[in-house]
Design a protein around this nucleic acid. Sequence first.
DNA 1: TTGTACGCGTTATCAT
DNA 2: ATGATAACGCGTACAA
Lengths: 329, 329
Amino acid sequence: MTKLIDVARKAGCSPTTVSRVINNYGYISEKTRKKVFQAMAELHYQPNSAARSLQGKKTQLVGLIFPTVSNPFFGELVSKIENQLFTAGYKTILCNAEEKIEKERSYLQMLTANKVDGIIAGAHNLEIAEYQETGLPIVSFDRKLSDNIPIVSSDNYLGGELATQELYDNGARKIYFVGTATVTGQPTDRRLQGYKNKIKQLGLEPRVQPISSGEKAEIKEMAIQNLLSTKVVDGIVASDDLTASLCLTVAERLSLSVPQDLKIIGFDGSQVVRTLRPDLSTIVQPTQAIAQLLVKLLEERIAHPHEPLTQDTYTLPVELLRRKSSSHQ
Amino acid sequence: MTKLIDVARKAGCSPTTVSRVINNYGYISEKTRKKVFQAMAELHYQPNSAARSLQGKKTQLVGLIFPTVSNPFFGELVSKIENQLFTAGYKTILCNAEEKIEKERSYLQMLTANKVDGIIAGAHNLEIAEYQETGLPIVSFDRKLSDNIPIVSSDNYLGGELATQELYDNGARKIYFVGTATVTGQPTDRRLQGYKNKIKQLGLEPRVQPISSGEKAEIKEMAIQNLLSTKVVDGIVASDDLTASLCLTVAERLSLSVPQDLKIIGFDGSQVVRTLRPDLSTIVQPTQAIAQLLVKLLEERIAHPHEPLTQDTYTLPVELLRRKSSSHQ
DNA sequence: TTGTACGCGTTATCAT
DNA sequence: ATGATAACGCGTACAA
């Protein structure tokens, strides 16, 4: 591998000068600058990033901790974050934390050891303290990590309200909330809170069918089938599109007509789901805006790691996508 | 950040000894080994990976170059590869190459500069030469990169045949191939070849409706709508599930009954698609097996970079998933 | 079994 | 405007 000193020799100057050219530092004559660039090009010189970061330079590496990119929403979000990071000159280290605490912890250590410049975290299991201990710039998606870590999330509360209102407006009265219903105080719970609040406003009774997100599709389907065959249900606010899709599938199996007998609305609105389930109404999260904001905030934290946060919560607007599954008839 | 010498001081020995303990190298007495581990634990010591790799050590970093994880198939595959890599002690650098040559090239340079231990490539645009120039261990998914780079792929040819046969067996005779139909000689083209061969065997006429994969869903839909409303079609072998799903959507819009009037089969069979389109028949790629094999082969290349390949093409079996969209009635 | 000393490729400091 | 030199943290011949 060609190195700094090779370039220096070729350009007829010292390594220091070459370094100066590369880093745009100090005074260099136009003439030598040209010569150095010339030499670098001819030798296909690539700076050794290990050596650079050993000098305290940034690594241009950012760690992404998310549940899994096999989920279409996270796939889309991660893909957009990666794009933003690339534009900003960063490479992305991907961690699918799954639900495994050990994996998440192990990754956090790796990321610390690898001297990433920062972390974008969207997973949901580790203790807050472990994130703080890293001392790294962190921004979080949909998750309270610590007081000095900014959170970006969609307006989940409003989303829950919108979804419920939509079903109500189209005639549903026995409206269930189906899906992840944790009680951790995390932003995602706010979908459920929005649902509950709206239900109350409407003078209806809240009905929640919790389904743990980690389960296999078959297990989830059974729980839904049980719900739909034993209770009177004419509306379902699902905690996410995948759950909503399972509801659609089960409804069809039970010969329940959607939207006549049962109206369903999901949450997330990724492009893939819109393509694969074009009839599904849903609350759309603005993945592009989320990605942009996460990266922008992280860049700020990296530039000024010790400044106090000007704002610690960023709530982005969601949008109701009306489709057949929630329509009047 | 605590370093080797801090551990050494705490353990009352030299840095060398600590290094030996860490790398399991040379002879160390059990007693000092204990003391060193003790000290490391107390200080929360994390080796500086920049310094290590500067000594020619491995970085335990692997680059993944794929089109985009927002595609459910690649999302699932990348997720599984990342898991395999993690188990093997590697971190994953993710590159969504999209269709952008410049991005792919830029990443390749970054990966080289960052001294990743190897690359798993599943993208489809760069020149072969650029991959060879890196001098890195590489394995490829579904793509011929170079003579000394092993290729892993599903049995796309058989998949194309199976799909066609399935439609035929259930009564279709005007069977179109719809979707990506490149002519690059890459393994993915073999789906089309399998289709063509089977069509010929069956004494039917091949009919291909090419749809470039980069287009937006709306554009693709229009092409499909045009096809279905101007031609007589009773069977569609789609190049992938997303395209198949668009066909289903358009068919419904045109009041064509599936599978009565039109039978459709897709390709890929990711879990997400199975959940969202449970009626869609498809050819399932064995993502878990692909991920395992890719990582295993890469590990071998990393361990023995200069050994000639014992085998350069690995074809994994696909499976036909029969669902309603291709059934007899 | 353990320690000393040098080098990995780059950048920062101090000269010139 | 440019160069010499020390340092970053770790691994490894070589010495003890």
